[in-house]
Write a protein that binds this DNA or RNA. Structure first.
Length: 1036
RNA sequence: GGGCGGUUAGCUCAGCGGUAGAGCGCCUGCCUUACAAGCAGGAUGUCACUGGUUCGAAUCCAGUAUCGCCCACCA
């Protein structure tokens, strides 16, 4: 498995496709993620939110699995005893609907087929296509333990379901009874409250008048479902309603049906609404059901299971509910009972799966008595903050729901699922299951027989309840049943309770709450410590992705285009802490996504950085860098590395996956690639073997750490590179290596800020060069000058770095550091050093007169020193003999001039200028013997060495002055404009700071360190303004 | 009707009391022997609005607007 391609033959573009497939196969074949209960470390267990076995992978899965896998891989590398358990659920209603469609095509239906044949076909279907979703999960690179894969209808889980049902029944927490349920006429089954969606529809409000039975007039009622009047058994008014008080107790004659129904008083009736009187249909409306119970009204069911009206509907029997609605209205209108019709927008409950309006329907069903279970969950929440929700705000949502929760209808009139383990003694009720047929609940048919014999004698005839359980009943025990419960297996004792449940907010009620209620009741322990709730992945228009809108974005298409790591990284980096919805950029015409492409580019960047490291290593295995030989840049990257390791760990421990992903990106690209690799290049090609070896070791060490840090986010590419880098054998996987911990001793903020100054200095130089029209290939000499002791030290410490970078940037840089000044001073006895505070150089530089000769000598000495310094230090210059290098001579000239003008003093310019003239002549002389391009530029520069030579481009970094000669035909006005703009901007900041510091309140009340910081900043900015103004003046 | 979340650069989003940030896009210059899926540099903001608290508010509080989500039995 280990990559054996020589590093210099690695492709310059990363190919995620073959790589990802290879490592996915490797992980699975080698059972890298197989959990071992005996593994040391604190257990870390996640059970997968089981996708529907019918399903195929959508973006929501990709998002969720990416989050889980990142967490799981992280904790595995942290040494936890890790298990991520995969599986699917049987999705009772979804599969039934799917099979119904299939059978309809074949011209049959489930009732014709019969239960056994139906189930046989269902299982065939499951075997054939149930693997789709799990194979797609594999393409995400999920680090699950496939050996522990479960299905909610497999043997063990079915056993757990039986155990749960019988136990809850024995405890009186499951009961059978006749209640109003949500009936889906499409699937012809009851559904739970949660499986009902309210949809706003434009309907009508029909006003009807019911004649009082004593012919003394009418009472007016309004309804949105007029056909239900056929089942009315009362009219209710509010007891405090003066208008109707006298009618209470009287009866009305129900139109069409002709039966007399009472006018009753009930607080439920709203005085303000409609006519103030409301028709009561106890068998077809949840409120009316309650009213009916309170007043002992008859319950008249007018509906069949398929949504048509039954014989209780009189003349409308057999008609579909919506056909009947029209006909009832027509009849009422014809007979003068319809008062008026208004347009009316209202919410209609729809069956989530069946996509048709549900009917409140009176039927006998199985229910879970929810209060004792919900109260227990509430107690866990209130007393033990269990489970802990992340983000915290979901706690309230969860809690509120538990508080108002009502009994849960768990029976479904379907066949695919767990058949309810209740056996009816049908011999007691003439061979039929009726509402009053006695039954026994048992774990098996044999046990049922035993129980029934004891109760009804051995001639009892038993029939199992035909209904199945709500899918969520089995999903509700997923965390315990998948781990072996009710058996006390080693897995169960080790990994239960699980650590974290990761899921979407839409599933808190469906699943999370049911797990907390059921599992805690059954095992005495909450099923997980933490619930991490993520947002939704929205489409490019910020729309929720849904089948009906057909706006889903197929993760597999993006994976094919950019690779799994790229998609995963994109999704995870968008997570950030808050659990917000994320929007995925996507172009439907081209199937492209800019944000996933950016992640793909990041993978490629890492690939190429690694290629660079590999190419530049001598041997594959390197020891850690020798501490004593570490250079500034080495220490800097090590400091940054350890800081980012610290951040990553911190973020991951608080579910800040997005922040962690972003900080890694910035470190890898912005620090490691952009700076460290660049400045290490000269060392790798240089003569200094110690420096070279140190750079190599540091590169190796940091890259190795980067791969480990990034592995949970981009598992495939990191595994690939890591094997090549370390030459680890097949027995090793990066996924099982220890995650880097931050070594605090390497984190050095002072050094990092030193480095920031250097970076800023370089940036200033680059800008100056660009502004001065100096081509990248041209070598120039620049002068850095500072009056701050700290900055001077930084520049000195960074000299090597600056030189290295200068080489890369084709800059040759001379440092105006004290050590050089001292050397200058040592060359002549009386030469003053730099004035530390040249407020305005012209006036404030030392005015003490020194012999012109000495001045000249000093200037020359300085020049030579700098040149010699350059020679010994700069490879650039090695390439060309000293005096043959035209540009360096120019540089030398400039240096001399600068040295004269700014670094030394301004005493006798004339004298020096003659010396400079000498330089000029020599340079010109040299030039005539060499012909190089861009001679115009050179000519100008050379000319510029004389008296009309004044102009330099200047910038500041901190208060370090950066000066370079102007070259070529430069647009002075643009240059000045730029300077002026910088000054204006700075002056604005100065003003703001001055304002703040002159505010007594601020100075007195703000923390001293904040005030001091402001003072320092103000001082620096003022200095910068001065410097820039000075430079501006020089350009005039 | 209750509850929750969002409103910051052209786009997607971080930041959540001390001088406004990233990625993408855009502009300028570069095929520099890790990477053009790249390098260097650059421009861009009444931080939705109005008040308040504070020495200081994008950040905290109150309200408004607006977009979105969840829950809810109103005939």
């Amino acid at each position: 498995m280990t990559a054996t391609i020589p590093p210099n033959q690695l492709a310059s573009q990363y190919d995620p496709f073959s790589t990802e497939a290879r490592w996915q196969a490797y992980w699975e074949e080698n059972a890298v993620f197989k959990a071992d209960p005996n593994h040391p470390g604190e257990p870390y267990c996640v059970v997968i939110p089981p996708p529907n076995v019918t399903g195929s992978l959508h973006m929501g899965h990709a998002f969720e699995e990416a989050i889980i896998d990142t967490l799981v891989r992280y904790h595995r590398m942290k040494g936890r005893n890790t298990l991520w358990l995969p599986g699917t659920d049987h999705a009772s209603i979804a599969v039934s609907a799917l099979l119904d469609v299939q059978f309809k095509k074949e011209g049959t239906n489930r009732f014709e087929l019969g239960r056994d044949q139906y189930l046989e076909r269902a299982w065939q279907w499951k075997e054939a296509s149930g693997g789709t979703i799990t194979n797609q999960l594999r393409k995400l690179g999920v680090s699950v333990d496939w050996s522990r894969e479960r299905f909610t209808m497999d043997e063990g889980m079915s056993k757990a379901v039986l155990e749960t049902f019988t136990r809850l029944y024995d405890e009186g927490l499951i009961y059978r009874g006749e209640y109003l349920v949500n009936w889906c006429p499409a699937s012809q089954s009851a559904v739970s409250d949660l499986e009902v969606d309210q949809q706003e529809v434009k309907g009508h409000l029909w006003y009807l008048r019911y004649p009082l039975s004593d012919d003394s007039g009418f009472i007016e009622v309004a309804t949105t479902r007029p056909e239900t009047m056929l089942g009315d058994t009362a009219v209710a008014v509010n007891p405090n309603d003066q208008r109707y008080r006298h009618l209470i107790g009287k009866t009305v004659t129900l139109p069409i049906m002709g039966r007399q129904i009472p006018i009753i008083a009930d607080e439920y009736t709203d005085l303000e609404l409609g006519s103030g009187a409301v028709k009561i249909t106890p068998a077809h409306d949840p409120n009316d059901f309650e009213v009916g119970k309170r007043h002992n009204l008859p319950f008249i069911n007018i509906l069949n299971k398929d949504g048509s009206l039954n014989e209780k509907a009189g003349p409308f029997a057999g008609q579909d509910r919506f056909v009947a609605r029209k006909n009832v209205i027509q009849r009422l209108d014809a007979e003068g009972f319809l008062v008026k019709v208004e347009d009316h927008v209202h919410n209609v409950p729809y069956s989530e799966r069946g996509k048709v309006p549900i009917e409140p329907f009176l039927s006998t069903q199985w229910f879970v008595k929810i209060r004792p279970l919900a109260d227990r969950a509430l107690q866990e929440l209130d007393e033990h903050q269990s489970p802990l929700f992340v983000p915290e705000r979901w706690t309230k949502v969860y809690r509120d729901w538990l508080v108002k929760l009502e009994d849960w209808c768990i029976s479904r009139q379907l066949w695919w699922g767990h058949q309810i383990p209740a056996w009816y003694a049908i011999s007691e009720t003439e061979g039929k299951i009726t509402d009053s047929t006695p039954f026994v609940v048992a774990r098996s048919a044999a046990e049922a027989r035993e129980k029934a014999w004891a109760q009804f004698g051995s001639d009892v005839v038993l029939e199992q309840d035909p209904d199945v359980l709500d899918t969520w009943f089995s999903s509700g025990i997923w965390p315990c049943s998948t781990l072996g419960w009710p058996e006390q297996t080693q897995d169960f004792s080790t990994y239960y309770p699980t650590t974290t449940l990761v899921t979407g907010f839409d599933i808190i009620f469906f699943w999370v709450a049911r797990m907390t209620m059921m599992c805690s009741h059954l095992t005495g322990k909450m099923p997980f410590q933490t619930v991490y709730i993520h947002g939704l992945v929205r489409d490019e228009n910020n729309q929720k992705m849904s089948k009906s809108k057909n706006n889903g974005i197929d993760p597999l298409i993006l994976i094919q285009k950019y690779g799994t790591d790229a998609l995963r990284y994109t999704l995870v980096r968008e997570v950030v802490g808050a659990g917000q919805d994320i929007r995925l950029e996507y172009n439907r015409k081209t199937d492209e996504s800019a944000s996933v492409e950016a992640s793909r580019n990041f993978a490629n960047k890492l690939w190429n950085a690694s290629r660079f490291v590999l190419i530049n290593l001598d041997s594959q295995i390197l020891p850690s860098p020798e501490e004593s030989s570490l250079e500034l840049s080495d220490r800097w990257i090590l400091s940054r590395f350890n800081r980012v390791a610290q951040q990553t760990n911190r973020f991951m421990n608080t579910y800040g996956l997005g922040e962690a992903a972003k900080s890694l990106y910035e470190f890898i690209w912005g620090d490691f690639c952009d700076w460290y690799i660049e400045l290490v290049k000269p060392r790798l090609n240089g003569e200094d073997q110690t420096s070279r070896a140190t750079a190599q070791a540091t590169l190796y060490h940091v890259l190795d750490g980067i791969l480990k840090l990034l592995h949970p986010y981009m598992p495939h590419i990191t595994e690939e590179i890591w094997h090549t880098l370390t030459q680890a054998g097949e027995d090793k996987s990066l996924a099982l290596q220890a995650y880097p911990e931050a070594a605090e001793k390497w984190i050095n903020p002072a050094l990092e800020s030193q480095f920031d100054l250097l970076i800023e200095t370089i940036r200033t130089l680059r800008n100056l060069r660009a502004d001065s029209d100096i081509k990248p290939s041209q070598k120039i000499t620049a002068i850095l000058k500072t009056e701050s002791e700290a900055e001077r030290e930084t520049l000195e410490a960074g000299q090597r770095y600056i030189r290295d970078l200068a080489r890369v940037e084709s800059l040759s840089i001379q440092g105006g550091s004290r050590s050089l000044d001292e050397k200058v001073a040592n060359t002549s006895t009386e030469v003053p050093t730099v004035d530390p505070k040249p407020e305005s150089p012209q006036q404030q530089l030392p005015t003490k007169l020194v012999s012109p000769v000495l001045i000249a000598i000093s200037a020359l000495a300085l020049t030579v020193l700098l040149l010699v310094g350059s020679l010994s230090l700069l490879d650039v210059i090695n390439a060309v003999p000293l005096l043959r290098s035209f540009f360096e001579l120019v540089g030398a000239g400039y240096t001399a001039w600068f040295g004269y003008r700014y670094l030394l003093f301004t005493a006798n310019r004339k004298e020096l200028s003659s010396r400079v003239q000498t330089f000029k002549e020599r340079v010109v002389g040299e030039r005539s013997t060499e012909s190089e391009d861009s001679s115009v530029t050179r000519q100008e520069i050379v000319d510029g060495l004389g008296e009309d030579l004044k102009q330099t481009a200047a910038g500041v970094a901190g208060t370090v002055q950066v000066l370079i000669p102007l070259a070529g035909v430069v647009d002075l006005r643009a240059l000045k404009g730029k300077l002026q703009k910088d000054i204006t901007k700075l002056e604005g900041s100065v003003k703001a700071l001055e304002g703040r510091l002159s505010n007594q309140g601020y100075v007195e009340k703000a923390p001293p360190e904040v005030v001091q910081k402001s003072r320092d900043e103000l001082a620096e900015m003022r200095k910068q303004v001065e410097i820039l103004q000075e430079r501006l003046a020089k350009l005039e």
